[in-house]
Design a protein around this nucleic acid. Sequence first.
RNA 1: GGCCCGGUGGUCAAGAGGUUAAGACACGGCCCUUUCACGGCUGUAACAUGGGUUCGAGUCCCAUCCGGGUCACCA
Length: 487
Amino acid sequence: MDEVRVRFAPSPTGPLHIGGARSALFNYLYAKGAGGKLILRVEDTDSERSSRQSEVNILESLKWLGIDWDEGPDVGGDYGPYRQTERLPAYQEYTKRLLKEGKAYYCYCTEEELEAQRKEFSEQGELPRYNGKCYHLTPEERARFAAEGRKPVVRFHVPENQDVVIKDRVRGRVVFESNGIGDYVIVKSDGIPTYNYAVVIDDHLMKISHVIRAEEHLSNTPRQVLLYEALGWEAPVFAHISLILGKDRAKMSKRHGATSVVQYREEGYLPEAVVNFLALLGWSPEGEEEILSLEEIVQQFSLDRVAKNPAVFDMDKLSWINGIYIRKSPVEKLVKMALPYIEKAGILPNNPGHEDRERIALAVTALREHLVTMKDIVSYLQDFSQEKVALENEETKAVLREDTVPQVMQAFRNKLAALPEVTPESIKILLKTIGKELKLGGKQVYMPIRIAITGQMHGPELNFLIPLIGKELVLSRIESAFQQVAP
RNA sequence: GGCCCGGUGGUCAAGAGGUUAAGACACGGCCCUUUCACGGCUGUAACAUGGGUUCGAGUCCCAUCCGGGUCACCA
């Protein structure tokens, strides 16, 4: 069997979309699993919207996710260049051939004329498509239009009454009728090929064996297949994976929240978590374990287990997976991840010293079980740096008014003040001692202290919390709490 | 609207004619925990509808309904 060569071919018109990331991932998984190559090709033929900035964003997002490629605009390869705008001569050659063989023709229709045509078709209740008018142009007419200064496009002449068959690895055999497709533009008036044309030439020239892409491209595929036939080339194997939908079951878009990979990175999701989640959208492992590393997914991945139906993007599950990865990560790594958020929030100086890092490490250990994303750590930290505390509700106040509270708090304050080193260990002993000395257990000791320090009935373990907030703040916070229940 | 794809619990998703119709997230309960969370156990909950084919249909066929995609000198 020939070498497996797949490609991810984004158009650099914006940041990498989460759906694009999934397409890239599936291509990567398939390539790796088959010992093949992943090619990255930039489809920048939309000169209006393409930008280098977007291209950089896409490459960086992919790298962040851990998806790497064997050939591409940055690393080169034997089948370059890997940007379509740098491949113009290649397209021109085939355009000439198609023109010569009468399989394509120049079209001089203006936008107004096309608009009028479309209108006419739809008024007659017919499919609004190109009527083939310029196909019949005589050389004289063409010359006249050219003399007028009209810049022509090149249209592909679609053969009539033909079934166009697509062999799709996930959908099976899909058949379209050629009559439903009007003659379409393959080269724009500025000489740049359109998507449907450039993909075909590039996929062929780059020896792409499998085209794995989103389902939205399925309706385009017959146009491409027709081109393969006209050029006398064999089409690659297609695999159209279903779309990712938002909560309302419409294609994922901005109004569904974060759609770009960078947004997830900024929100504090771990790349391993995003990749794991994305893989599970449309693909399922054979076993029951769903928490899988990229390597494990590569091992298990198969197009046979890719679902046909679209998948709703389930934020809850992503959060759950991210939490799992946060808990799995070593503290050091989490500290490193947390740093940018903390710096940005201005909680700590920009070049945190050893002590600050210690403190963050403490925060991470105290909070890791509670975090959904790494960004969440900021609001906890901000809260813990306040001098005062707000009692959450009436219940917390009621607890602080209980009879045993004064003696507990007095003991706590005294012992804390006398404590030379505030560490999780020393606090743990301190709290135990209070319980023993006062012969009070459980809630009677821990709850008032917790409430007096945080204003809330729930939260991380006290022995972490107290060193994290620090002796001074703890004392001032306690004071502010009791002011709120003073008679 | 034409064409195309799809339709198993709220969500993801196993299932390749014969199963008590997996599992995961979410939700409820219990346990653990001096709180919450984490973790463990457990529960509620699904084959869109109607016709066929078959001894037997979630699985095959057809229709209907519903959802989505696509119909550009965007990709």
